[in-house]
Design a protein around this nucleic acid. Structure first.
Length: 284
DNA sequence: AATGAGGCCTGGTTGC
DNA sequence: TGCAACCAGGCCTCAT
């Protein structure tokens, strides 16, 4: 929805000027903020694409092949289309002004985990032209070209714990800590289950559950462009109310009534139902 | 090579 | 009331 909203507003528009208002936002553009701004001026946006938490604008040819401006949203980043006279956002990081003096493109990011950078487009293993830093990111479960069986095979090939594999964006993208906990709850699996003992059916179930959760979140929060605003906890208001596991410590499981437990995992909190999602008898 | 731990960041919340 | 400590998390770097 972010991608579609952006596409409607920026495709075929020519960039006039780019202001980097927080240098950290372009730290991954190794040539620096001046180069970042200079290389975008005069370019026309030809496409908007997404993979996982990455979003990029394809640009018209610069003479040395195709490139794109890549945005990573981190956990608090947003791409906003804003009227030129709108009061500036206090977390403004990059502002793009177009030659038509119409609505601007704002990259806004409270926690500055996200950022923007310019990269050539390269052919990815799974098909398509992608910015180089994104080439290793897998498709997400909602992508029409997502290959469920290949993703299950990828997870089962790993020698790790299930939740780690779900959070690894190279196999399947778009699953963060919240979606992982929700998908595991729906599939009745504990996150520390060893991937090599996962059955194909269990693998398909947890990925199908992840797709359901993403669908629900998108349907709830993605209807209008400004409504894609994601709050500090990474969940939209509606989605927050529809969580079954994440953040529900001590609340009764919606299936069996057992209080949801919280555990530390990968320096993060994980939530699960002790009864529906028993820990495997042995692990590691 | 593959896997895992730690760090980056800011603002809201919690605890003293 | 004021302040410090804590917490959130996507992904990059570094160690093993």
């Amino acid at each position: 929805m972010v991608r579609r909203g952006l596409a409607e507003h920026v495709i075929d528009r020519k960039i006039a000027e780019v202001a980097v208002e927080h240098p950290r936002a372009v730290r991954r553009h190794i040539e620096g903020d001046l180069d970042f701004a200079a290389r975008l001026a005069g370019r026309t946006v030809t496409g908007v694409r997404r993979r996982g938490k990455y979003l990029w604008l394809e640009l018209d040819e610069a003479g040395d092949g195709s490139d794109a401006v890549l945005a990573h949203l981190g956990m608090s980043g947003q791409m906003l289309v804003a009227a030129a006279d709108r009061p500036p956002n206090s977390h403004m990081r990059v502002r793009v002004r177009f030659a038509d003096d119409g609505p601007q493109l704002w990259f806004v990011d409270q926690r500055t985990f996200g950022g923007m950078s310019i990269h050539p487009l390269v052919a990815a293993a799974g098909g398509g032209l992608l910015p180089e830093p994104v080439a290793h990111i897998g498709r997400d479960p909602m992508d029409p070209a997502f290959d469920l069986d290949a993703a299950v095979a990828g997870i089962r090939r790993r020698r790790t714990e299930l939740k780690r594999a779900l959070l690894d964006q190279t196999i399947v993208s778009g699953i963060g800590n919240i979606y992982a906990d929700e998908a595991l709850w729906r599939a009745r699996l504990h996150g520390i289950r060893p991937t090599e003992k996962l059955t194909r059916a269990q693998g398909r179930a947890v990925l199908a559950a992840a797709a359901e959760v993403m669908d629900a979140a998108l349907a709830a929060g993605g209807t209008s462009f400004d409504a894609l605003y994601v709050n500090v906890n990474g969940a939209s208001g509606f989605f927050d109310r529809s969580l079954d596991a994440y953040g529900q410590e001590d609340r009764p499981c919606r299936r069996c009534g057992t209080p949801i437990r919280r555990e530390q995992f990968m320096n993060r909190s994980s939530y699960s139902c002790p009864r529906c999602q028993p820990r495997p008898r042995t692990h590691h």
